[in-house]
Amino acid sequence: MVRFIGVAAGLVFVVALLIGALMPREEVVPDPVKAIHLYPRDPGFAHDGPLGLGVFGTFDRAQLQRGYQVYKEVCAACHSMQRVAFRNLADIGFSEAEVKALAKAAEVPSIDPATGEAATRPALPSDKFPKPYPNEVAARAANNNALPPDLSLIVKARPDGQSYLYSLLTGYDRPVPKGHEVPEGLHFNPYFHSVNIAMAKPLNDGQVEYADGTNASVDQMSKDVTAFLRWAAEPELESRRQAGVATMIFLGILTLLAFLTYRRVWAGIPH
């Protein structure tokens, strides 16, 4: 009886496999988003080095300072950078006095020592960049229930991060394809994964005034703030590359010496 039940179960399994293999499959409905989604464009950055290989590239300090200005005047209204402190700005070329002045112009949460109540105080160089919202609930309430991501590591958190950010910031003026409907409260951007994004176009020509006279076009501001965010995500990029190049040179010399030593040791020994 047990054997009969086992054989019957096996036959049922085989019949089910045959039916599944022979029955016509339903036609796959193409994803309309994939047809209009665009892959990021790489504008080329100084820190990517020659040919974009990223070996000898270094950050353009002037560009990083312009990028910080774009973040401070535009992006900081919605996006935090909780892993970056004001003192870190010295690494992009700001003097100690400038860092103190930039920090002092910002307000950070504090406690009133006299009353014990919540208060604010001018930031110190050791303070992190202040958050635009006190908590996630407030952030969502101010952004149509969308949560603006923290930008400290955004370049590392997105595939092809810096190209993606640059493309996203410059992709708002693309025309909406025929037949595609943008839901109310969203905005069309073909570089966003779903092509409909909650963030409105953040940059417009001339929105900031650069102290060095650089033309503040949307393309230029997008490059500058993207470079700044790349630095924020990898502030040790240059030193790591320098260490890598030095290591490769050392290994090359060591290999050459080892080969010459081998030739000398075995020179008088017949093969």
Rank of each mutant, 00 (worst) to 15 (best):
M1I: 11
V2N: 07
F4C: 06
F4K: 14
I5S: 09
A8Y: 09
A9L: 14
G10N: 07
L11P: 00
V12E: 05
V14Q: 00
V14W: 10
M23I: 08
R25G: 14
P30E: 13
P30Q: 04
V33D: 12
H37P: 01
H37S: 11
Y39L: 09
R41H: 05
D42M: 03
P43H: 00
P43R: 01
G49I: 12
G49C: 11
P50V: 09
L51D: 12
L51M: 15
L53G: 06
G54W: 12
F56W: 12
G57F: 05
T58V: 14
F59L: 08
Q65S: 07
G67W: 06
V70E: 01
V70M: 08
K72R: 15
H79A: 06
S80D: 11
Q82T: 15
R83F: 14
V84I: 14
A85T: 15
F86K: 05
F86Y: 14
R87Y: 10
D91I: 01
D91R: 15
I92M: 12
F94D: 07
A97Y: 01
E98F: 09
V99Y: 10
V99E: 11
A101M: 11
L102N: 04
L102K: 04
A106G: 02
E107N: 06
E107C: 00
V108A: 01
P109K: 06
P109E: 01
D112R: 02
D112Y: 00
A118N: 07
A119P: 05
R121F: 00
P125G: 06
D127C: 08
F129A: 09
P130A: 07
K131A: 14
P132H: 10
P134C: 13
V137I: 15
A141Q: 15
N145A: 12
A146V: 02
L147Y: 05
D150A: 04
L151K: 06
L153C: 12
V155H: 11
V155R: 08
A157H: 15
R158T: 15
P159F: 09
D160V: 14
G161T: 03
Q162G: 02
Q162R: 13
S163K: 04
S167A: 08
L169E: 09
D173V: 03
R174S: 13
P177H: 09
G179N: 11
E181Q: 11
V182C: 11
P190S: 12
P190G: 13
H193N: 13
S194C: 06
V195W: 11
N196Y: 12
A198L: 02
K201S: 02
P202T: 04
L203P: 09
Q207A: 12
V208P: 10
Y210E: 10
Y210K: 04
Y210V: 09
A211L: 14
D212L: 02
T214V: 08
N215F: 05
N215I: 13
V218W: 07
Q220C: 03
V225C: 03
F228E: 00
L229V: 06
R230N: 08
A232F: 12
P235G: 10
P235V: 04
L237C: 06
E238A: 10
R240K: 14
R241F: 01
Q242M: 11
A246I: 09
A246V: 08
T247G: 10
T247Y: 12
M248I: 15
L251P: 02
L251Q: 13
L254E: 05
A258M: 13
A258R: 05
F259E: 14
F259R: 08
L260D: 03
Y262N: 07
Y262P: 03
R264A: 11
V265N: 01
A267G: 00
H271D: 13
H271V: 12
